[in-house]
């Protein structure tokens, strides 16, 4: 069998099972990144603009959590969502929302830490002008987020790359259930363990294509930003 061809043939033929796997991967990772952005950007921005005792510790913790191993995040969410865990009554373990939760835990620190860095740099630049214009705190945060939007988009895309590529967390909390919680990465893990290497390689190539696409998008946005805002 010609490697890589089979998965693409399935994709081109619109194989519903494969499309469902690709679609679930995207839905889960995009939902997770959406939630992580809603949490991470305000948290990162306020961290950039406030000073309180222990702030350095918080900053270091967020930076360290950027490298949080996915399996650890998965395990934490697993223990939380298990029927025997504190949030067991929600019945979310082995469902797509559980996978979203795990990826939110993974991606939020990345978005928060990078946002803090971006907003802090921008604030250093804007501090004098905005203070001189007597801009209030709320508008200040809004202005910095808006003016940092191109960097922030790149950050969000980086978060998406992390989410879409990880397997450790979602295989633990999702269970890799066929047709329900099987994503591209968990399918690759499964097909590899079944020894069906051509299918695994094909899925891998699709995943890489998506990640490359996302990065190309990030690069284009960065370029556009430079041209527009200097």
């Amino acid at each position: 069998m010609e490697p890589t061809v089979s998965a693409f043939q399935l994709l081109l033929a619109g194989d519903p099972a494969l499309l469902a796997v690709v679609r679930l991967s995207l839905i889960v990772s995009m939902s997770a990144v959406g939630v992580a952005t809603l949490i991470g950007v305000p948290v990162g921005a306020s961290l950039a603009l406030t000073h309180f005792p222990g702030r350095t510790v918080v900053v270091v913790v967020f930076n360290a959590l950027m490298g949080l191993p996915p399996v650890v995040a998965g395990l934490a969410v697993f223990l939380l969502l298990s029927r025997s865990g504190p949030l067991g009554s929600l019945g979310l373990l082995f469902t797509p929302p559980a996978m979203v939760c795990a990826q939110v835990v993974l991606v939020t620190p990345i978005i928060a830490a990078l946002t803090r860095q971006t907003i802090e740099d921008l604030w250093e630049e804007y501090c004098d002008e905005l203070t001189a214009m007597n801009v209030g705190m709320v508008r200040r945060v809004g202005t910095l987020i808006w003016d940092g939007r191109f960097s922030l988009i790149t950050i969000v895309l980086a978060g998406f790359g992390r989410a879409a590529a990880e397997v450790g967390a979602i295989i633990i909390v999702g269970g890799n259930i066929e047709g329900f919680t099987r994503t591209m990465t968990t399918a690759i893990a499964l097909e590899t363990s079944k020894g069906d290497l051509p299918l695994a390689i094909g899925l891998g190539v699709i995943l890489i294509a998506i990640v490359v696409l996302v990065n190309a998008l990030a690069w284009t946005v960065g370029r556009a930003a430079q041209r527009y805002a200097g």
Partner: peptide
């Protein structure tokens, strides 16, 4: 964090109508 996760989960639920 748990609360936020809950909200996140609830939001995510909406996009997976098959669950209900």
């Amino acid at each position: 964090l748990a609360r936020r996760l809950l909200i996140a989960a609830a939001a995510a639920m909406l996009s997976f109508p098959a669950l209900a």
